[in-house]
Each structure stands twice: as C-alpha cells, then as structure tokens.
Write a protein that binds this DNA or RNA. Structure first.
Length: 300
DNA sequence: ATGATTTGACCCGT
DNA sequence: ACGGGTCAAATCAT
C-alpha cells in the first residue's frame, strides 16, 4: 500500500531529521555525515512525492544507492546500502545494508552498539554458522534488540547482518561515557589486539567517524530507528579461515525508537563486505549512513 | 573472581 | 519431524 509506504517514507525522513539534529548538536559530528543525513531527508521527500504522484520511481536518482554508496565510500571507505523489502509480511520490514571498505571484520561488523553473543547455529544450506547477539544492555535496560551475523557463503568478505527489534537502551546512560565503553567480543585465538572486553576504546575521532545513524522504520506506525553512533576502533587480524563466529560488535546507545512487539519487530539486514585483501586492516572504519529509503540489495 | 563466549540441549513454529 | 532461535552450564579470557 502506497499510503503505508508514504507514511513510512515520511517517518524515515523525520527520523533522519532527528538524527541531523543530534549531529548538529554534536561538536564532533562531521559535515559529511550531516550532508548525508540531509541527503537522506531529501531522499525521503522525493520518495514520498513520487509515491504520491503515482510514480514508482523516485525522480531523484541519487536515492538509488549507487551514488549514495559512492559518497559513503569516499567518506568512509565503506558503503552502506540499505534496502527495505516488505516480504509481504505485515508489520515487518527488512532492510539491508551493504558495508564495504578497508576495515577489518570487526570494524565492519561494528555498528556502534554493544552486543553480547548468546548463541551460534549452523544453518541449513549455509556453510557458515550464524551468530546470535543481543544488546549488551538487555539486562540493565531491558533492551530487546538482537542481531544475527552470518558470513555469506560465496563472498568470503561479506556478512549478512540482521537486526531485529529496537534498541531501547538509554542513549544517555552509556553514550556519554565516552563515547563508549564497548564490550567488544574478542576473538579468542586470534591476535594481538589490544584487550578489549568492556573497555573504553573510543577516541573522539572514532566517535566522529561513527556518529551516523542508520535507521529504519516499520511498515506500521512505529518508527524504528537504529543508531550506530560509534564503534570500536580495534585492530585485528582476520581469521585465516572461515570460521568467523566471532564478530565482536559493539553496542551503544540509541534512539529509543520503537516498541518491540512480538510480531512487530523491525528487522534490518546488513551485509558487510570487506576487501579480500584486508588481512590486518587498520581501523578507519566508520559506519557511514544508511539510506534506508530505497535501495537495492546487492546480495541476491 | 568476574564476565564473556562456546556449545549442546531445549523450545517453538511450521 | 525439522529448522531456527534461545537457554544455560561449561569454558575461556582478563
């Protein structure tokens, strides 16, 4: 339904505007990020208008991923492409984010939130296991956000990351402290990385890098927004093999966003793609912006 | 000692 | 019955 989509688009635009507001208040927020947010806001308008006028496609091409992705690439060595697809399932939505760049797995998988792994499963038909993570602040704040990370079979450097539910943890309570105390999962046997579980590793610069906030909204009334304000700046070696069941990710606070109901949980799917060459990548990853408006999924 | 991850078992929906 | 998601005890790292 177009009406729904329009509302959705406008809601997204609103969320982007909110994010922009936050960024404007943040001294370390970069202009680029702000520009991207503005871009996304305009994009939401474009989409809404095109829906209203009955045109399937947005009159503005920049909303279709490529340009946007390029921008991000320039900005952050990564591109993020979000995709929404309504699976026809009411009350559910799904978005995909493509991340690419010269960052390590961990960086790439870092979305700025603190996650705690609670399970791993081999999935039928998939070579790689799927890791299950939940917000590290679940107990403290009852945040029900979860995410699943699975390495894509074909693309060794690509991960499918699915977010479910919304972060309800209070941004203020963690955010400030630096921006982050990030409990980062540390791959056991791999490396020389600085110890980092539960350590504050965020430099202001890092904070700046990641201060972007991808967001998505549900098909329904609820606005689901995901915030990936920052992430860890850890260095690491890539596992020589394919078992990458550890993907430390960090969590941070977020915009409270939405209510999570059993059947109404937002799902954001993201795929992180890394350059095959990257073996020891040094950081420099920033989670740019996600354009959840209308993008294309590249992984199918 | 404390906290995070691992991993097999369990639960639930299809 | 099967597959996916979660639980929780054991294990590991700091």
């Amino acid at each position: 339904m177009d009406h729904k989509r329009i509302v959705d688009e406008l809601t997204q635009g609103k969320e982007f505007a909110k994010q922009l507001m936050i960024h404007l208040d943040n001294p370390v927020s970069s202009n680029e990020v702000q520009e991207i947010l503005i871009h996304n806001i305009l994009n939401s308008y474009d989409k809404s208008l095109s829906l209203l006028t009955g045109h399937g496609l947005s009159p503005v091409s920049h909303s279709h991923g490529t340009n946007f992705g390029r921008d991000l690439e320039n900005l952050d060595h990564k591109d993020l492409i979000a995709k929404r697809n309504d699976n026809g399932i009411t009350g559910k939505w799904k978005s995909q984010v493509k991340v690419r760049g010269d960052m390590g797995f961990e960086e790439a998988l870092d979305d700025g939130y603190s996650w705690r792994k609670y399970g791993q499963k081999d999935i039928l038909g998939a070579k790689n296991p799927r890791g299950y993570y939940r917000c590290a602040y679940r107990q403290v704040e009852g945040c029900l956000a979860t995410k699943q990370v699975q390495k894509v079979d074909k693309e060794p450097n690509t991960f499918d990351i699915t977010y479910r539910g919304s972060h309800t943890c209070n941004p203020g309570s963690h955010q400030e402290s630096t921006s982050l105390s990030l409990p980062v999962s540390t791959p056991r046997q791999e490396t020389q990385q600085p110890p980092q579980q539960n350590q504050v590793v965020q430099s202001p610069e890092t904070l700046l890098k990641f201060q972007t906030t991808p967001m998505v909204m549900s098909e329904n009334l609820e606005t689901r927004s995901f915030h990936f304000p920052s992430t860890s700046n850890k260095l690491f070696n890539l596992p020589p093999v394919d078992d990458v069941h550890d993907d430390p990710t960090v969590c941070r606070s977020i915009s409270n966003a939405m209510t999570v109901e059993s059947e109404l949980h937002g799902v954001v799917s993201a795929a992180a793609i890394f350059p095959t060459s990257s073996q020891n990548v040094d950081v420099g990853f920033r989670f740019g912006e996600l354009d959840f408006g209308n993008n294309f999924n590249i992984f199918d």
